[in-house]
Design a protein around this nucleic acid. Structure first.
Lengths: 353, 353
DNA sequence: CTGAAAGCGCTTACAG
DNA sequence: CTGAAAGCGCTTACAG
């Protein structure tokens, strides 16, 4: 009997007695519906596609892990792929997910417009960690700008004026926002921005050592560093140890293993990938069961008028804060040997904007 | 025309001219075959299921990343799931993968027999990092026993006799093998094993601190520690710093971020998850294209006689070595206050086996 | 070497 | 509330 299908899909139009009969038979036979057949006919698969920069990166691995936890509890399969921060590859992967009839997609966009113009149909897309640009999508992020501002102000409050920023490549949305926050704080403090201290050109941790050496070779080297993401921090810390400049203040975006155990312990913005992942997965689930809303809420929604109603909130903010551990509270070390005579008071040194 | 299907599946029985005609039409229309339909009819999907302890664990994340790299190059999709070291869950996930018609499965088995008796049909299963028990499967591992032996001998060579072993739970195959290697080295050196120093009961890094405290509370505390996996190392190192016992020698299985930067830097067995992942993926690919073998090799294979020929090598070994960085070369610190008089020469202290 | 038919296992309308 | 038919988009034998 084909009523079986109705039981399987929780169709309400089936007598409770019949339902129980069918359900028990299914249990006895250990019957499991064929996902391919179901997907083929229904045009939708109970799977969610997830694209991140790289599944091997500790930050994204943790993010994906919590996405998986939430989604697998909800009965979804998780398809994972790495974009390696290539927008073309990212787009191809998402297209493939759509073709595979994924119920939804979660992406850490390699650039804000990486999926621009993509026809997603009614498949919800959630951008994780970075704001993405696609009509109807939701982005789950931390307050990058405000947190970068806070980080910078923290260092300024500890007496620093020569603060360097190390970031990914500027096309990455988070790098942009963190850069802007840094800028605001520096300008507002009347210090201004020395462009030589802004190094948002470190796609890989492997390049960090060279950049650090560059910075310390400046005639007025930085006394403090902000590392804009975990991957870079994993390069910055060893580099500082290597060049023997652990007296440099350091503030890292993203907590990481051993941050507390190092000497000095690393002050971080606890930008938590697990929280971001969970929030992204939950945002997606919300969009995946539109009928699950209570009747009351349904009634409250505006009448359809041809246009899809604008999502009230297409940006979800995940909380994050600063954890002071030592490296971010180091005082500026006296300007190096070159200038032993302190003629100018540190507070008077104002760079041009 | 249904010749299209033949072109798609590289069927040789199609005229080259026709093939090119069809192929160009496909290109022009940007045609992509429907995976669900294909899977439904062909009974096989171009995807590989991967089950690891946890995708959030740095070790397994790196392993999965390299599996993904290899398999996606070969045109396979990767389905990833975390078993959370629950054999029941692990088995259910694999069954689900099989039902989804995965072309192959890669598993880090939570215990050797976790998939025992599972009917996999002709779907190849590769066990990664730990030896698994399933007819016809391949296991890709490092030489756990020999490496554990080497690690232990390294510490013994640096004068240690009180060497503690911290491992996962004993059902995990790697823990068993490493335990055995440790045992061999201790016995062969004439030191013998003090069971109080063998702590293969640390499923989580969170429990490590308590175990470390236990060990140091012994009347004859260890002067050296072996951490049997990366996850534990991430707990052991902070714990040693916390209790102020960084003078304890440490040898960790598995390299990890900051190991080189910590003070002291951590001596490790460079059990590389990327190598294991790559080898596992390649072993799977080998089994996925049996006809890709050269005709010569085909001819050389014994005639089929009803029984599946035994795999020549169902265990693939991945190389690994010891990287001395400091922590593993620390000398035993003089026995604590309790016994200041060195009446017995260290080489003469032999514990019971 | 190429085509026409049947069917993989479900779900979706359409009748009863 | 339940059943019989058609079809999702491919591939697999089977004829020509």
């Amino acid at each position: 009997m084909k009523t079986a299908s109705r039981v399987l899909n929780d169709d309400p139009r089936v007598a409770p007695a019949t339902r129980e009969l069918v359900a028990s038979a299914m249990r006895r036979l250990d019957y499991r519906p064929d996902p391919a057949a179901r997907s083929l006919r229904a045009g939708r698969d109970r799977s969610v596609g997830v694209v991140v920069d790289s599944i091997g990166d500790v930050f994204f691995a943790a993010l994906v892990a919590s996405v998986e936890t939430v989604l697998s509890e909800a009965g979804y399969h998780v398809l994972i792929a790495s974009s390696h921060r290539d927008p073309v590859r990212e787009r191809a992967i998402v297209q493939d997910f759509l073709q595979r009839r994924c119920a939804g997609v979660i992406v850490t966009p390699s650039r804000p417009d990486s999926l621009a113009g993509l026809r997603t149909g009614d498949v919800p897309v959630v951008f994780a960690d970075r704001v993405g640009d696609l009509p109807g999508s939701t982005s789950v992020v931390v307050e990058d700008l405000a947190l970068a501002r806070q980080a910078t102000e923290h260092l300024i409050a500890h007496g620093h004026r020569r603060i360097a920023l190390l970031g990914d490549i500027p096309v990455v949305a988070t790098t942009q926002a963190r850069h802007a926050g840094y800028r605001q704080a520096m300008v507002d403090a009347g210090i201004g921005v020395d462009e030589r201290l802004v190094r948002t050109d470190c796609p890989d941790a492997s390049e960090v050592l060279r950049v650090i050496e560059d910075l310390f070779a400046l005639d007025e080297p930085p006394t403090a560093l902000i590392s804009a993401n975990t991957r870079l921090s994993l390069g910055v810390v060893p580099a500082l140890h290597l060049v023997g400049r652990t007296d440099t203040a350091l503030l890292a975006f993203g907590d990481f293993a051993m941050a507390e155990t190092l000497a000095p312990a690393v002050t971080v913005i606890d930008h938590d990938p697990q929280r971001v992942g969970r929030a992204a997965a939950e945002a997606l689930l919300d969009r995946l069961r539109p009928r699950a809303a209570s009747p009351a809420e349904d009634a409250a929604s505006p009448a359809e008028e041809g246009t899809t109603p604008l999502e009230a909130a297409d940006v979800v903010l995940v909380p994050a804060g600063l954890i002071a551990r030592g490296s971010g509270e180091l005082p500026p070390r006296p300007t190096p040997a070159v200038r032993t005579n302190r003629t100018t008071a540190p507070t008077a040194t104002t760079a041009t904007t």
